[in-house]
Simulated scan of single mutants.
Amino acid sequence: MEHPHTPLRRGWTTGSCATAAAKAAWAALCGQGFPDPVTITLPGGQDVAFALAAHGHGPDSAWAEVVKDAGDDPDVTHGAHVRVVVRRAPAGRGVVFRAGPGVGTVTLPGLPIPPGEPAINPVPRRMIRAALTGADGHEPDVEVTISIAGGEEMARHTLNGRLGIVGGLSILGTTGIVVPFSCAAWIDSIHRGVDVARALGLPHVAGCTGDVSERATRALYDLPEEAMLEMGDFAGGLLKYLRRHPVPRVTIGGGVAKMTKLAQGFLDLHSRRGQADMDQLADLAQGIGAPDALVDSIAQAHSVAAAFALAAEAGYSLGPAVARGAWQVACDVLAGTPCVLDVLLFDRAGTLVARHGPYPVAG
């Protein structure tokens, strides 16, 4: 994506920032002073330099702090102060990770890190270990504690609570780079939500497009929070992962506009990926017996919501046919799995407009 005049600027993950801070603190603990800037190697092999925001010594430790720059991405952690304290550990311990203030702890199974461990993902752990390992290939015996000022409050705006990560943020990153407006982080969160649900043995999960449909779906089925997958616009990201990692029952819930797009074959429901085809919606109205004048009005409607309103005023409901079409598109993606699937349509107030299913997905 590009700004009208300049490309969007990339940034750095919390994992990259923590790696840079850890490397600087370890150098100081070894008597080499604090390198500033400090250079680290990303998983892709690129060398990048980070300025230190602050640094210091403790009685038996050294610490350094890096301010996260997320580039032009609207990342909740942009500007976060990532501090790493490094202290020597008993011989044979290797690198041990600790969660300081603002960094969460894993409490549920299914994530790449087991319960009880600090929420520092595998790639950042490897990056930090590599940064602390000497030229002789020897990994030092050290305790690495990562903190993020204000991280517990920032985490309230993430999916961490739903994934069972409590007390703060996760230290994330697979490439070390933040790509502005990337879908990857959101889709990864969806996948981790499925993993947690499967590890807990939940028989029923629900992916919803927004807060209204999520609240309504959860209330309808009395589902636990861990069963709710914040699908957003990424229906394909959820359904394709469920095809490889199935669960017994799946509900897809959303507003009439996004479910209409799903019924028309869109798996990315964001408006920038295309608008719902009003002519197709008019054909659907014709298929349920709507008169020609109403069909023409629906074809000319400025939005899906307006088309639904026109149909309702004339005594016709587009909801059941849209729900049926959305179910079929989702079913095609899940084909061959043992899932039972249903689709729910809600209006803006969270009132159920239509439902199709639950029916088994045909192989």
Rank of each mutant, 00 (worst) to 15 (best):
G254M: 10
G237T: 01
T6I: 12
W12Q: 11
G116I: 06
A149S: 11
M1F: 06
D296E: 15
A80S: 15
A25M: 09
V295E: 10
W63K: 04
V67P: 02
E226C: 06
P114Q: 04
K258D: 02
I190D: 11
M259R: 06
A299W: 06
I252T: 03
G237N: 01
P114H: 04
S170L: 03
L284F: 04
V322E: 03
V82T: 13
K23Y: 01
W12K: 05
Y359A: 14
A263Q: 09
A216E: 09
T14P: 06
G167E: 06
A362N: 08
L239E: 12
G265I: 12
P246Q: 10
S317C: 03
P118H: 04
I113V: 15
R125I: 03
V76N: 06
L345N: 08
F97E: 07
G161F: 02
P59D: 15
T175D: 12
V67N: 07
L344V: 10
V247T: 14
S189M: 03
Q328A: 14
Q280V: 04
P43Y: 06
M231Y: 12
A135Y: 00
D268V: 09
P320K: 00
A299V: 04
S189W: 00
W63H: 08
P358R: 08
A20C: 05
A155F: 02
H302L: 05
P338L: 11
N121I: 01
G137C: 09
R272N: 08
L159D: 05
